[in-house]
């Protein structure tokens, strides 16, 4: 294991987050089994009060996981100097088979925690807490993901040894050759990637508009959000990053976060993440609107989430467009 401050901090954060959620599982189970609002007993009252604690803890976990995600990528990039052949975060993550799974699990935890908080937010608007069982069952399901994320990250960091020869991003993400899954993403033709991106953004914006205007089809918006996220990430790897680096064969989702490129990656990722998490949330809120006690509040929540989601995707699209526009690299000849 590499004994490094950022690594210790990351392990601390994931460990504590997992522990917190794990510690809430017995309580969640009690809620699933015993919750009864009609009961005026003190036990029920205590249970109700305990839900405030769990919600607060989950908020902290989500904030911590978000910060940890940024720290993780940042640190991976920084550690690249420790590994021969690694030039950026991709190299560091490839040092060990657990590297990319750690990243993916961190993303999953972030999105799931976000969904849970939306569920909680909506549920708290219904006078009879109609989703409380769903919510706490979801919490029970969330726990293994968090624990898994902490364990996988532990395995990754434990396995790190400085000076392991790895393939770095310039070979890994350059099209063709090595059989890595991300590779097929990188070799996605630019035209196809951009058309897919434009199509999915148009679709997600349209479905968002439907939610905004008619307060329905939240589920469709959520689905399209997931699609837009995946396509957006692929487009960043295959094409947009190339425009930023102005090098046709440099495909890397992390280097755009670096100072050399003006931290421009944040302007892409933050709106994309906001758009996705709010899009998923809008779907959840729309679904919750079927409960009688939420029939007025949930659509409102869905609407404001959809507004955020639409704003996020629109901003993402604009930033991507601007990056392509300002780039000196020309991938498409305009035929007069």
């Amino acid at each position: 294991m590499l004994f490094q401050p950022a690594i210790i901090a990351l392990m601390l954060a994931s460990g504590l987050a997992a522990l917190l959620v794990l510690a809430s599982v017995p309580f969640a189970w009690t809620v699933v089994r015993r919750w009864n609002l009609a009961d005026g007993s003190e036990a029920q009252l205590r249970m109700e009060r305990r839900t405030y604690l769990v919600a607060t803890l989950l908020k902290i976990v989500m904030a911590a996981e978000l910060a940890a995600l940024v720290l993780f990528v940042f640190n991976a990039d920084r550690m690249a100097t420790l590994f021969t052949g690694a030039m950026c975060a991709v190299g560091t993550l490839k040092v060990d088979p657990w590297g990319f799974p750690t990243l993916y699990l961190k993303l999953a935890v972030f999105f799931l925690a976000g969904c849970w908080l939306v569920l909680d937010h909506v549920d708290n608007r219904g006078w009879d807490y109609p989703l409380i069982r769903v919510k706490y069952a979801a919490l029970i399901l969330l726990a293994p993901v968090l624990v898994g994320s902490a364990v996988v990250q532990g395995a990754y960091f434990m396995g790190l040894r400085a000076d392991v020869i790895t393939s770095c991003c310039s070979t890994l993400f350059s099209g063709g050759g090595v059989t890595v899954t991300s590779n097929s993403v990188a070799s996605l033709p630019h035209g196809l990637a951009l058309s897919l991106l434009a199509g999915s953004l148009a679709a997600v914006l349209a479905s968002g508009a439907v939610v905004l205007r008619w307060r329905r089809c939240g589920w469709l918006h959520a689905l399209l959000s997931v699609a837009a996220f995946v396509i957006g990430m692929s487009a960043i790897i295959s094409t947009i990053s190339v425009y930023v680096y102005e090098m046709p064969h440099h495909h890397c989702p992390f280097c755009i976060l670096k100072r050399e490129y003006g931290h421009i990656g944040y302007a892409l990722y933050v709106p994309l993440f906001v758009g996705t998490v709010c899009g998923l949330g809008a779907g959840i809120a729309g679904w919750a609107g079927r409960r009688p006690s939420l029939s007025t509040m949930a659509p409102l929540v869905a609407r404001s989430l959809a507004a955020w989601s639409v704003g996020g995707y629109a901003l993402f699209g604009l930033v991507a467009l601007w990056l392509i526009e300002r780039s000196h690299l020309i991938l498409f000849e305009v035929v007069p």
Binding site: A6, A9, L10, L71
Partner: peptide, 11 residues
């Protein structure tokens, strides 16, 4: 260094 500030925050 930003990374350092972030790490310190966690600690």
């Amino acid at each position: 260094d930003e990374l350092q500030v972030a790490t310190l925050f966690f600690f």
